[in-house]
Design a protein around this nucleic acid. Structure first.
Lengths: 260, 260
DNA sequence: CAGTGGTCTAGACCACACT
DNA sequence: GTGTGGTCTAGACCACTGA
């Protein structure tokens, strides 16, 4: 029999209708949200690894003692948040950055699509967190963090220079070698080697003037305008685990966004 | 009896199960998507105005001859796309920019929230579309378009300078007076006076250097870096009806984005 | 109170991917 | 064919709003 998380999860599910009573008004939580939370816990605990299939809806409804429709609604939400991926006829899978490389990348060439995306890592070292990084990662100033510097290439041209900071307690063992494997993005490596999945991110964008270092890395002149993108990426439980600064050329590229 | 769109909509609904047969595989369209399409048509046709309540789920399911669950699923999608807004106990309403002013605005002050948002319109005139505007709006070059120039204030400080282009066939009657009413955003005016609702937008962001005009409007020096945001906004049927260029100060503000 | 959306169920059947 | 997700139904009941 397959490995089964949730040894006795049923016990704290508040059943509706005829069975166990639900509290009237204050903080009413529907069943499907409780199921959602249980699935989330399993994901967070690593019970199901990225890319692997989770138990079928039928199995989950049996395991939790609820109807398939209720499980479906829970999975609907997680699927909309891109934590799970449904494939009709195949099953439901844990989302993985291996399947969607550069998922958070919004930089695009002005003309033609993005044929090629790859990064060239320049360095990977442990440093002491400065105030900005410490603040973003909710760490004390001076805590060890891993700093990765790299250049992002779009269609074989340098498009952005990244300074990436990862909290040291999670990623202390990160090395340049890990980052130099072909066909493996940073987030994919973090998933694979450290079991930490990036599920959400927030970005702040600003126009600034390139300094010498930035200009050199992007083949620009000092003083040219560049787009600064600051990102905080979160894993399960809204825990911030990455802070990065990307300096982007926007003479031939642009940051794309869709609003609704 | 209330006004009822869909005089004989049933006729072209393909019923599932026992009733009317559904084609096997090729281009199978579930019932709830057909219902969704019908609601969309009613919205697009202006059968239900922005801010008003649409018929209850019970009424719609009766009218369409489908179960409540099917109508719900259709509304679920439209609600996720922010075309409809559900309010428990009250009803389901057509989304309106009057209820969500500056819904597409992503510029925020670096410190403190946005206490105040308002725009000062500088001009509103009919001009001939240049190549960029014509291209964005899918119009012939030289077509009449309305050009609106304005300054966006956040917390009483100029934060962005906007050049807005609206296709002339829809908005030829737009006037400066319409835009100078308090408590009424541009999109709200377009909804109210022209019956055109902006439902979606795409933006391209770039870092550029401020020219004299931009610098003056934003109280900057020529040569300072500014964030250029180009937007195309769409109404029902993915029809592009607005193109705009926003020049944003990002020394005290930033463009915020959430990724998932 | 009646009317609205929101939750949950049990069961039937369809579409799709594998084997 | 079997197993997966996807659709649809009918009905019961809950939560919320406002008259």
């Amino acid at each position: 029999m397959a490995y089964t998380p949730f040894p006795s999860s049923h016990s704290f599910i508040v059943l509706p209708g005829q069975a166990g009573r639900r509290v009237k008004s204050p903080s009413f939580n529907p069943l499907y949200r409780q199921i959602r939370e249980l699935i989330l816990q399993a994901l967070s605990a690593g019970d199901w690894m990225p890319g692997s299939m989770i138990p079928s809806e039928a199995e989950l409804s049996a395991r939790f003692g609820v109807s398939q429709g209720t499980v479906r609604k829970a999975i609907d939400e997680l699927s909309a948040e891109k934590l799970l991926v449904r494939l009709q006829g195949k099953g439901t899978f844990v989302a993985s950055h291996s399947d969607t490389p550069y998922r958070f990348l919004r930089l695009r060439p002005d003309i033609g699509g993005t044929q090629q995306k790859y990064s060239q890592t320049l360095s990977c070292e442990s440093i002491a967190a400065d105030e900005k990084a410490a603040d973003a990662l909710a760490l004390p100033v001076g805590s060890p963090v891993m700093q990765v510097e790299r250049i992002l290439f779009l269609n074989d041209e340098p498009a952005a220079f990244d300074q990436i900071f990862l909290s040291g307690d999670n990623f202390g063992e990160l090395s340049l070698e890990m980052l130099c494997q072909e066909q493996r993005t940073l987030y994919s490596v973090l998933e694979w080697r450290f079991g930490v999945r990036m599920i959400r991110a927030k970005e702040k964008l600003r126009a600034i003037t390139a300094g010498a270092k930035i200009a050199e890395n992007l083949v620009l002149s000092a003083g040219d305008p560049v787009l600064l993108v600051e990102r905080i990426a979160y894993t399960y439980g809204d825990k911030a685990v990455e802070w990065r600064r990307s300096f982007c050329r926007t003479d031939r590229y642009h940051y794309f966004n869709e609003l609704d």
